[in-house]
Write a protein that binds this DNA or RNA. Structure first.
Lengths: 228, 228
DNA sequence: TCTATTTCTTATCCTACATCAATGTGAAAG
DNA sequence: CTTTCACATTGATGTAGGATAAGAAATAGA
């Protein structure tokens, strides 16, 4: 029970913990962990025992909308696994403008890999777009996992290569594609996010202003485009 | 001596192999391998024995200017280590326009990591900007290296993270920086390439037209900018 | 429910960069 | 020495998308 405190969102320490809120948070905690365990079994091909060993000390937290998980300039000590909700990472330029690097809906990971690996200050900020339940994986989790299972090492290597492929694709699109092409690519990458995320964030992800995105959408509508 | 044939550039099979050309190519071959061995010792912290074991079967080739090392659509089976010369990777868009993804001068690696790892057709084309001497590392090299040395695994992991960090930075610049800022970043990344590479290639790397780059340079000159 | 804030659209003008076309330059080839 | 070729520069003009402002619509808060 030692991690229960972590369940409550920072901004929302319930004044009175009634039995019902208590059990609600307990359920949330438990279900998030189970979800993460399932993920490890299916995607990383770990055994039940390995999963049990690895997940013994994990902390799960719920974070409120626009709560921060990582500030620019901090060293990133965690990988975040999103059980429910939606996180984002972004940079802030000299003019104070945000540029969204990644969205992380359910069952995605998000972190600043460079910062976590090289232990250097992060360029990225990570915060919650929706109230979210998040499993916190600190850097020792990775080491433990690596020592425990060769399967996990392979899984991790594959994840790194997937990430590289994705970044490559994004660079290529930014170099060669129009606003419209990039928007269509976004839709196929994150089909459900179109509805959940404010358009100005999508615009920011695409390197556009909200106004331009609005124009692109209008044009697509005129051409009778239907998203899947 | 069994790899000697690989030394000669495809486009240039010497009609007569005089003793002097023969010894020249032999020297090239030998010196490239020595350079690569030194690299492995210093950067990947391998022992002399491990290096000897790993490099026994390597092939070294010289490629002529604008010879291809990988065509778009092929599966990439190699990682290329540049001993001397300069390679590049690029994509080709629907309009036939090239977009340079990476330059690889001396002591850099170049490959299509996604294609090599996932064994899928490459988006990238790789060719030589200058006549180059290249060490070919096929996919079994990686496996052998991994089996042979824990140090190599760490080195490879670090290389992957460096690569990710670099891609991240590039995405961020493409999202947020002006042509001028991106050019300045290019100069600090590849200081010596400014002189070796035609400007239209630099423009392509930056996502600009040669004309725009020319104007950026003019503007920098007006502002009395001196590289480094 | 009604206000208030956030988000989305529309319209205008504007700017960074693209496109096109002409000219310049310097090194290699004849 | 001149011709050619491969790049680079320059200028004129076009355009995608940015900046700004203001109203409409959606959402949230009370």
């Amino acid at each position: 029970m030692k991690h229960t405190h972590a369940l409550f969102p920072h901004h929302l320490p319930p004044k009175k913990i009634t039995p019902s809120t208590f059990y609600f948070f307990l359920f949330t905690f438990h279900s998030a962990l189970e979800n993460f365990k399932t993920y490890l079994k299916e995607k990383a091909h770990l055994t039940v025992d390995e999963v049990a060993e690895l997940t013994r000390e994990l902390s799960v937290k719920t974070v409120g909308k626009s709560d921060f998980l990582l500030h620019e300039g901090e060293v990133c000590h965690y990988s975040f696994f999103v059980d429910k909700g939606l996180l984002r990472s972004y940079t802030i330029d000299e003019g104070g403008k945000e540029h969204i690097i990644q969205f992380a809906p359910e069952n995605w990971f998000i972190t600043d890999r460079s910062s976590a690996y090289f232990m250097e200050p992060s360029q990225l900020t990570i915060d919650a777009i929706e109230e979210s339940t998040v499993v916190f994986l600190d850097n020792t989790f990775m080491e433990k996992a690596r020592d425990l299972s060769k399967e996990f090492i392979r899984y991790n290597e594959k994840a790194l290569h997937n990430f590289i492929r994705h970044q490559q694709q994004r660079i290529n699109l930014l170099l060669s594609a129009t606003a419209e092409q990039r928007y269509l690519d976004f839709i196929s990458l994150y089909p459900d996010l179109m509805l959940r995320v404010p358009q100005w964030m999508i615009a920011s992800y695409l390197g556009l202003t909200p106004e331009s995105l609005s124009r692109v959408r209008k044009e697509l509508a005129r051409k009778n485009f239907k998203p899947q």
